[in-house]
């Protein structure tokens, strides 16, 4: 993992952005940017060279799954690591995300160790 890459955290809850950011900082990531929903995330992706997206599913304006589909529809983001971190752990949700090209899937609540393992696995793929 390149700890110098920019990581984009997408979640409508500031609490979860804060928790995920804390885990990333503990892992050594230095460049972390945030967005409150999928629409804002797409705008960040246009401005910044992002190396990893960590996104919630349920968000107003544009959900995480809509963001994932919009990202994968663009050639330059076909292989951008995209981790869904969500409370939606039902089978249909996981399958939909896999079909849409998610790199890894983390169900909330999670431990820092779980997120770390999923991050490492995402970069091995």
């Amino acid at each position: 993992m390149d700890l110098g890459m920019t990581v984009l955290i997408v979640d409508d809850f500031a609490t979860m952005r804060r928790i995920v950011k804390g885990v990333l900082k503990d892992l050594g990531f230095k460049n972390i940017i945030e967005a409150e929903n999928g629409k804002a995330a797409l705008s960040e992706l246009k401005k910044e060279e992002v190396g990893l997206v960590i996104s919630d599913w349920n968000m107003p304006e544009m959900t995480g799954i809509e963001l994932l589909k919009a990202v994968r529809a663009q050639d330059q983001f076909k292989s951008l690591p995209f981790i869904m971190v969500t409370a939606e752990g039902q089978k249909d949700n996981v399958l939909e995300a896999v079909k849409a090209g998610v790199t890894n899937y983390v169900v909330k609540p999670f431990t820092p160790e779980t997120l770390k393992q999923k991050l490492e696995a995402a970069f091995k793929q």
Binding site: F13, A14, T15, M16, N58, T86, A87, E88, G89, V107, K108, P109
Partner: peptide
């Protein structure tokens, strides 16, 4: 915000 997220996670689980 934290209460909303706690409720969200309880709902999901």
């Amino acid at each position: 915000d934290a209460v909303g997220e706690i409720a969200n996670m309880i709902s999901g689980q």
